[in-house]
């Protein structure tokens, strides 16, 4: 539980994106459709128009402060509203002052610039309402409770991080390291920027099966395969994330800020249920680096992966469809 030593607003600032435009390398501007962002997902996909040559993006935002922010008897003064763009991967932090739309109102708006040269993956936008409280300048009195995601590559404005899937002939791949796995149908590379699943096209038909849209037995088998693959993937990414933890002086692990953090936050509640994720991370880290308990934890890690893969559902449907097929062939 958290406690502030000064008065502030309880409710969050609401932030929404209102338009997105790309500046291209030839100097032209492409005003993207509103499908480039999702208010539901709080995500912007700058890759949506398929441009590879964009230089910067201009993202117009509008923020609504919670009620009371502009009350005449509010315990703060010098109210300002700041939109802050951050990217932990490229150490970018830029801030923009928003301007009040209508005197006496609570809506503020402005535009953020995102330079393509400054980002590789995702940047985040948060808004802070800042004032002078009890003589202390620059204090945040309210902020967004969830940042917007600006994905500089994705072509779909979704919040959930999507792991990469690539197909390759392991025998003939230019990635020579894949040749070592020529007899495996798929491998997981957790060392890439975003974990990547390589599917071996040398296994004939596997791609067709994965791409299939049909119903019937084929789709049930496909779902079973997908469940098997994703169980592998989730197990691998969890291990990779937990094995790469940065540790505070004093031995406490710190939550990673990239995909590893996202994976851990999602999976830890299944691995160590009933405690805060921070506490769960400490426990898992202690067991991994400590004397005992790591082996015992494998079942829970596997369980978390199986849950994420919807394995039970896929299996049940596959079995039912087999039974049906058997019945039909008998009659």
């Amino acid at each position: 539980m958290k406690f502030y030593p000064y008065k502030r607003l309880n409710r969050p600032v609401l932030l929404r994106v209102t338009s997105v435009a790309l500046r291209l390398s030839d100097g032209t501007r492409d005003q993207l459709e509103t499908t480039a962002y999702s208010t539901q997902q709080q995500a912007v996909a700058l890759g949506i128009a398929g441009h590879t040559d964009w230089v910067s993006a201009e993202i117009a935002v509008s923020a609504t402060l919670p009620p009371g922010a502009n009350a005449p008897d509010a315990p703060w003064s010098d109210l300002r509203v700041l939109a802050v763009l951050t990217d932990g991967e490229t150490n970018v932090r830029t801030s923009v002052d928003l301007t009040l739309d209508v005197e006496g109102g609570r809506d503020w708006s402005g535009a953020l610039k995102v330079f393509r040269d400054d980002h590789l993956g995702r940047a985040y936008v948060a808004v802070y309402a800042v004032g002078t409280v009890d003589g202390v300048r620059g204090r945040s009195i309210a902020e967004t409770d969830r940042s917007w995601i600006i994905d500089t590559a994705s072509d779909e404005p979704v919040r959930g991080l999507q792991l990469e899937v690539q197909k390759a002939s392991f025998k003939k791949s230019s990635r020579e390291w894949l040749q070592a796995y020529a007899d495996a149908p798929w491998v997981v590379d957790t060392s890439a920027r975003v974990p990547t699943v390589f599917v071996n096209t040398d296994v004939e038909g596997v791609i067709d099966l994965l791409d299939s849209n049909g119903s019937g037995v084929e789709s049930k088998v496909r779902d079973l395969l997908v469940a098997q693959m994703s169980t592998d993937v989730w197990t691998a990414v969890f291990h990779s994330a937990i094995g790469d933890l940065e540790v505070e002086p004093g031995g406490r692990p710190v939550f990673p800020t990239d995909w590893q953090g996202e994976v851990l936050r999602e999976m830890l509640p299944d691995v160590i249920p009933g405690v805060h994720v921070e506490e769960a991370l400490r426990q898992v880290h202690r067991r991994r680096t400590g004397e005992s308990g790591w082996v015992e934890l494998q079942t829970r890690i596997h369980y978390a992966a199986v849950r994420r893969a919807d394995a039970t559902k896929a299996l049940a449907f596959a079995i039912r469809s087999l039974e049906q097929m058997n019945r039909e062939s008998e009659t």
Partner: peptide, 28 residues
């Protein structure tokens, strides 16, 4: 209001969906 579903994306829709980090209901 919605972009047409991507036709290609390697590995098929089902796998891509399964490999998205997203919140599940809590385990017991």
């Amino acid at each position: 209001v919605a972009r047409p579903k991507r036709s290609s994306g390697e590995g098929g829709e089902a796998l891509r969906k399964a490999l998205t980090v997203r919140t599940r209901p809590k385990a017991k």
